[in-house]
């Protein structure tokens, strides 16, 4: 395989990791905890996309044979799936995070409660639509060709889309964080929730906003992955969820550009693993994570860790 092809493959996979880690990082920046239900929300985004483009549920599960009475083009389905995922993420915040915050319990308990929410979601999916894999047909893209030539390499349209949408969402998110009132509010809460509250910023609303955005990003990423490699079953988000964790630390916990940079680095590094060693590919990201934690614990673009006395 030639170099350019490897680069394209690596960047498009890396874009997904980046989108995934962006969701983690938004929640981490306001609450200081990891949302382990994030992988399940990503999975839901993929199933929502599949249903919205008119896909039918298979023979297993309670919803066997179910099909929406309408079929949207992929362009319409993807943002709607993102919105659906955002609603689920808000629900996760409501049941797994807010009660702990209200009781001022140890934030680390959120690791357990959010995983509980994830377990419920994943098994609910399995109960409703079964464990089989679903493929989003590439025909969903309308008149676009399946692949196009670029400087001598074949680029799948889906790969270009993944990269393009990830960069677009990152740009929008950065603009919004830096330029809007709510974006500034979110940053203030990330800095210090109590001071932000004193300054008249509604911390609870900002936390909800962070969850909604993170769910939207996860849902869109899920839909894109579903289009690119198919939905492998209710558990397919878990692998991405763990990779996303590695990417998150690599880029720097709480850093938005760091999440995307980390994603691209991990995606590229995996793409360069030779075929004979492909079994070890999954260890690459964790190896990176280990190195970063030991050499530069704040991550590539993270701020120095605070030392509190």
């Amino acid at each position: 395989m030639d170099l350019l092809q490897i680069l394209v493959n690596g960047l498009s996979v890396g874009a997904v990791y980046g989108l995934f880690a962006l969701g983690y990082t938004l929640v981490f920046s306001v609450l200081g905890v990891i949302n382990f239900a994030h992988g399940a929300v990503f999975t839901l985004g993929a199933y929502f996309t599949y249903l919205l483009i008119g896909g039918a549920v298979g023979a297993n599960g309670l919803l066997a044979g179910f099909q929406l009475p309408f079929a949207l083009p992929f362009w319409g389905a993807l943002p709607l799936a993102g919105l659906g995922a955002a609603l689920v993420a808000l629900l996760v915040e409501r049941v797994a995070f807010r009660p702990l915050r209200r009781r001022r319990a140890d934030p680390l308990l959120a690791l357990i409660t959010s995983l509980g929410a994830g377990v419920i979601l994943v098994n609910l999916i399995q109960l409703l639509v079964g464990a089989e894999s679903y493929a989003i047909p590439t025909g969903a893209l309308g008149g676009l060709p399946a692949s196009f030539p670029l400087l001598g390499a074949r680029v799948r349209t889906v790969q270009a889309l993944l990269l393009g949408i990830a960069v677009l969402l990152l740009a929008l998110l950065t603009l919004w964080l830096e330029g809007s009132r709510n974006g500034k509010g979110l940053q203030a809460v990330a800095e210090d929730p109590e001071t932000a509250q004193l300054l008249g910023i509604d911390s609870t609303a900002m936390v909800r906003l962070a969850f909604g955005l993170s769910g939207f990003l996860a849902g869109v990423a899920g839909g894109l992955v579903g289009l690119s490699v198919s939905i492998a079953g209710p558990y397919f988000g878990i692998g991405y969820g763990l990779k996303g964790l590695a990417v998150l630390v690599l880029g720097g916990l709480g850093s938005v550009p760091g999440a995307v940079l980390g994603g691209l680095i991990v995606g590229l590094a995996e793409a360069f693993v030779p075929a004979d060693w492909s079994g070890y590919k999954d260890a690459v990201s964790y190896g990176f994570l280990f190195l970063v934690l030991l050499l530069r614990p704040r991550g590539l673009l993270g701020r120095p860790l605070p030392t509190k006395v």
């Binding site: 049941v95 702990l100 319990a105 140890d106 409660t113 509980g116 994830g118 419920i120 109960l127």
Partner: peptide, 20 residues
Amino acid sequence: GDLRLILFGAVILLGPLFFP
């Protein structure tokens, strides 16, 4: 039956809320 793991998830979710 099929509700087993969903209930297990619910226990993991609710346990820390009621017994921090």
